[in-house]
Design a protein around this nucleic acid. Sequence first.
DNA 1: TATGAGGGCGCC
DNA 2: AAACGGCGCCCTCATA
Length: 517
Amino acid sequence: MLIDFNIKEKIKGFKKGSPSLRSGQSQYFDIGIAFWLINPEEKEYTPEYLGRKYFHPVRSRPAEGGATDTSGRPASNGVNKELYKYAIKKLKEYKLEKLFYEVETPLLSVLAEMEKTGIKLDLKFLKNLDKQLEDKLEILTKSIYKEAGGPFNINSPKQLGEILFQKLQVDLKGVKKTKGGKISTDVDTLMTIKDRHPVVKYVLEYRELFKLQSTYVKPLQALADKNGRVHTTYIQTGTTTGRLSSQNPNLQNIPAEGNLSKEVRKAFIAEKGYQLASFDYSQIELRILASLSGDPKMIEAFNNDLDIHKMTAANVFSAGGGSASGGNVMTLDKVTPEMRRLAKTLNFGVVYGMGANAFAKTSGLDFTKAKNFIEEYFSDFKNIKEWQEEVKSQARTSGYVTNLNGRRRWLLEATSMFRSEAAEAERAAINMPVQGLAADIIKIAMVKIADEIKKRKWEDSVRMLLTIHDELLFEIKEDIIKEAVSVIVKIMESAYELEVPVKITAKTGDNWGELEN
DNA sequence: TATGAGGGCGCC
DNA sequence: AAACGGCGCCCTCATA
């Protein structure tokens, strides 16, 4: 068995078909990942850091130079052995063995394969998009300088603030401050002052386009390999909830909404003879919340495949909270789009522990109305409130929370005497069992799909490319796409049983921006 | 020249 | 006033 750190990187170095890739899955023990399961909030998951923290807390001379071998890596075998033994013990104590051996460990080679495969970019398309952005930015820059009465660095919030509120004397009413005490120039602020000066709308457009160019269009071109494919790195120890993160490039935050934003997504294409296929877990976090809380209305709604936000709206907007006592809940067809929008914000917010302040801000309601809606929500879905209180109480009494699979997050701040700190920990506490279970479910599905691909000898025809929290993206050979899609959907839907059905939305197409069901 | 904080913003 | 959970990356600017 290979007991080490960064095993995914080592797997990537193995040649295809090498024996180490063949002989089952309990052959790896990634110490970093074990420590992450034990405590997902460590600063680092390196032998140096963990060794020092767990076994050599005070080392007067922290191993300068002398403790590293010629490869520049620490001579840490002794430390590794100590860390390994400790990890084994804790995984057992915390009941994390199943998660470790059956989910995280087999995931190593799945992720390694995805990273090696990469996803293809249409480089000509990107270059063209780059040029379009360049031209528009040049025009916007000129317009902004003209309106501002001279050049300045538009990318500097400091300078922009000075231009707007000192030089141009734009009315400050309703403009918030940053936590550093300076005037904010974020998009919310700019939106509220949009009609107070013509320069503002140019700045808003400039911001959007500059972001696209500097964060996506340019780096993606630079990172493409000679085949036009980009290879992200998944960080398996990168979050406190169990999710993966993606870096260099981050392919989990590619723009999805908006005109030109969609264009970036169109640059992700399938190889000739293949199609892209995406598989989305539909409302997975709300389904999990319904399942965990056992809320009868939520569960019934999902069992009947209702529009969950509409159902929420019907309940929340029925006067007098009469719903609970069998009163009149408005029928779904009476729900207006505006009511549904509000209910949707509410549903999402609840998963995050949103308060009246935040709800007011996102919904545009005034504080009192927002507060009333939240109260109405919790009186309509009493089980959710109860469940959240239980989780918070667990965090306070034990200092941690776990999800259904034992995934654990330490939240010692839940008992902090600083109210804001304790409140923050409580919000994290109620979110983790939900977000963390969603993460487990998609990871389990990924492992099962990878097994199925091998079993069917589909390695060349079905390539898993990306995982984006509740979505998987594949590149699939056209001749088997129908069959492959139905196989993948089935595995994802049955990967983990909840108290409500789990549903997948599958889409296919030539590029990521234009997929259709 | 390198680094880190701050402000800002893309995604689920 | 901020606060709604989880991420990574861009630019600026002060400081080393």
